[in-house]
């Protein structure tokens, strides 16, 4: 059967389309490079402890106090856990101390995260933690510990972080300092 119009067998030339995309990208790239900053900033909110607010209210929560002491590359985790046995009163607490030895590269933040995750499962309502770094600990390490304590966006741990300041930044118990 004879076609009314001849069948077009020649393929369309794609080069002009590619050229327009390339031109658009070459225009976008300098614009982005001019307006962008190499540094993206992020904020880490710190709770400020005022006089009289240093001790959290003794409610019915399992964990009454949670502290992360940083001394050099050593980390000491202290938790005041409310006793739940029948003879225990509301004020009876047990201090649980866990020392996390450092790795060759620095503090063992993965183990710290594991321990904190266990505490978070024990008392999911608790959001508050106090971080007590030593005076010689660099800020970069403090920030790494804060990240470990706060957890990730998928698995948040303790989001209300207090950094020790003033008289509450005493030496860590059991460290011999």
């Amino acid at each position: 059967m004879k076609r009314l119009l001849p069948l077009r067998t020649q393929e369309a030339d794609v080069r002009p389309v590619f050229m327009s995309i390339m031109a658009l990208m070459f225009m976008l790239l300098p614009c982005l490079l001019l307006t962008t900053s190499l540094q993206k900033l992020a904020a880490v909110d710190i709770q400020l402890e005022y006089e009289g607010a240093a001790t959290p209210p003794r409610d019915g929560s399992t964990i009454q106090e949670l502290q992360v002491h940083v001394r050099g590359a050593n980390i000491l985790l202290r938790a005041a856990i409310r006793r739940t046995d029948l003879g225990a009163g509301p004020e009876d607490i047990t201090w649980n101390e866990t020392s996390i030895p450092p790795l060759e590269t620095g503090p063992d933040l993965a183990t710290l995260r594991d321990h904190l995750s266990a505490f978070h499962h024990l008392d999911p309502q608790r959001q508050r933690v106090t971080v007590l770094p030593g005076d010689d600990v660099p800020t970069s390490r403090v920030m790494a510990v804060l990240d470990a304590v706060r957890g990730s966006t998928r698995t948040p741990l303790f989001t209300q972080v207090t950094l020790a300041s003033g008289s509450d930044a005493g030496p860590a118990p059991g460290t011999g300092e």
Binding site: P133, G134, D135, D136, P138, T139, S140, V142, M143, A169
Partner: peptide
């Protein structure tokens, strides 16, 4: 990043 925490405290 290099400032020791003593000063930050």
């Amino acid at each position: 990043a290099s400032i020791p925490y003593g000063l930050v405290r």
